[in-house]
Amino acid sequence: MAILDSSELSRAIKTGRAVPAWLLYSYDEYLLSSFTSRLIGSLTQETGEDATILPGPIPDIGKAVEAAGAISLFGTKRVVLFSHLDPAAVNTADLKLLADLCSEVENAVLVFTVLLKEPAKTWKGAAALKLPASAKTLLSAVEQCGIVAALEKPNEGSAKQYVMRYAKKLGAEFDENAAETLVERCGIDLLLLRAETEKLAAACGYGEINLTLVQKMSTRNIEADVFELSRHILSGRADAAYRLLGELFYLQNEPIMIAAALTGSYLDMYRVKAGAAASAGYGTVFKELGYKGSDYRLKKSLETAKNYSLSQLAECLDILARLDKKLKGSAVDRKILLELAVGELLMCGGTKRRNYAH
């Protein structure tokens, strides 16, 4: 049986697919937990009996065999959840026993969940979600008799749809632009996005969550704010750039941290521009340079730097390198040093340029 994705798993849960074993795995803990709760809720709905939970990383094999073989007092199948199983930590003989249970179990439904560790280098697609070799025996057993689902981390588009759906569930309405802004500010963290949506829905009296409300009340991610700062700089919007910089100072963000995030933004822009010059798309740059998560950030970087040449971006990086040295070794107020560097960065896109960093 083919490995299901998130939407296919949702349909399988909704239709009540009757199989003896399920295996769910993901890099995202909230996503894994959310789908597991839905699945367990669906499986236990008819019996009213709680699932038997055997926590990982190494489950108690004796209890597993006992739970799988026990006959329910209600004449229905028990649900046994192997939560956060770590196949690499379980010995080969016990993994073989669990695999055998999948095909032999008669009185229970087995649910295995595996939270994967993100590798140092990831990319989008099926290749990013791969069980360790130690899980091969269990994977093969569940594939033959049950359902396997690989829950890939959401991208910006699906995260936006998630907060809009969740707001509606709460009785509120999320403006599409506001939802997109919330994702940009918080990043793709479903647990954080859920909490922010709950807060914003309550703040607007469960009416419309608009852009102004998101900008005033949502959690601020320094990387998102600094990326917005770089967009103002590259567009020559000096007033907006300094206003945002002032807000970052007001929120007590350290100048060194702001400078580091700003350097990261310019490095992203330089890399995607260099990739484009070599006929390599931002997706290729994302993969080859070992970025994590989504390539949305590099896509935005390419759009932001469209009017800048590689040499101009290199000059900006040189300004930021000198700024870093001064921030770590100069007696001058760090806020002033950062403000002067922003002024020089603004000049890099113009025909005239004064050097504030020397």
Rank of each mutant, 00 (worst) to 15 (best):
A241K: 01
I209G: 04
A240V: 08
K160R: 15
M164E: 13
K168V: 05
A149D: 11
T181H: 07
A141E: 03
G246M: 02
G157A: 15
E247F: 14
Y242S: 01
K160D: 05
S235F: 10
L213Q: 13
D225A: 12
Q161P: 00
E143M: 11
L234E: 05
N221I: 09
I188A: 04
Y166P: 01
Y206T: 05
H232Q: 12
G236I: 11
L190T: 04
H232F: 13
K169C: 00
I222H: 03
P154K: 11
A240S: 13
K169H: 09
P154S: 12
L192M: 07
L213A: 10
P154M: 10
D239Y: 13
L211M: 11
E156S: 11
K168Q: 15
R165D: 14
A201N: 03
A150I: 03
A178Q: 07
K169D: 11
T212G: 14
A238H: 00
F227R: 04
L244N: 05
S218Q: 04
L229D: 00
F174G: 00
L182P: 05
A149V: 04
L193K: 05
R194G: 04
Y242K: 00
T212D: 15
V142S: 07
A238K: 12
S218K: 07
L139G: 02
A201W: 00
G236F: 10
E208L: 09
L182A: 02
L200E: 02
Y242Q: 03
L139A: 00
K160C: 14
A201H: 04
K153V: 14
C204D: 04
R185D: 10
I147T: 13
A201D: 02
C145T: 12
A195G: 09
I233V: 11
D175P: 09
E152Q: 08
I222V: 15
D175G: 14
S230D: 10
L182T: 01
C186P: 06
T219N: 03
Y162P: 13
E198W: 08
R194D: 03
L190N: 01
R231D: 11
T197Y: 02
I233R: 08
L191F: 08
L139F: 08
S140G: 06
L213R: 10
S235G: 15
S230L: 04
D189P: 03
R243T: 08
A201I: 11
T181I: 12
R231Y: 00
P154H: 05
I209N: 09
A150F: 00
I209W: 12
Q144T: 14
K169W: 06
R220S: 05
Y162I: 01
D225R: 02
E198F: 09
E247S: 13
L191C: 01
G236Q: 06
T219V: 14
A159Y: 02
L139R: 12
A172W: 09
G157F: 15
E196C: 10
G157T: 13
A203S: 15
A195Y: 01
L191Y: 10
D189C: 02
V163E: 00
R231Q: 13
L245V: 09
R194C: 04
S218G: 03
K168H: 15
C145E: 10
L192C: 05
P154F: 07
V183M: 02
V183W: 01
D239H: 07
C145Y: 03
A224M: 03
A172Y: 11
R194V: 01
N210V: 03
A241W: 04
L151A: 06
A224D: 01
I147H: 06
D239C: 06
A224K: 08
L213P: 10
V226K: 07
D175W: 01
L245P: 09
G205I: 14
R194F: 00
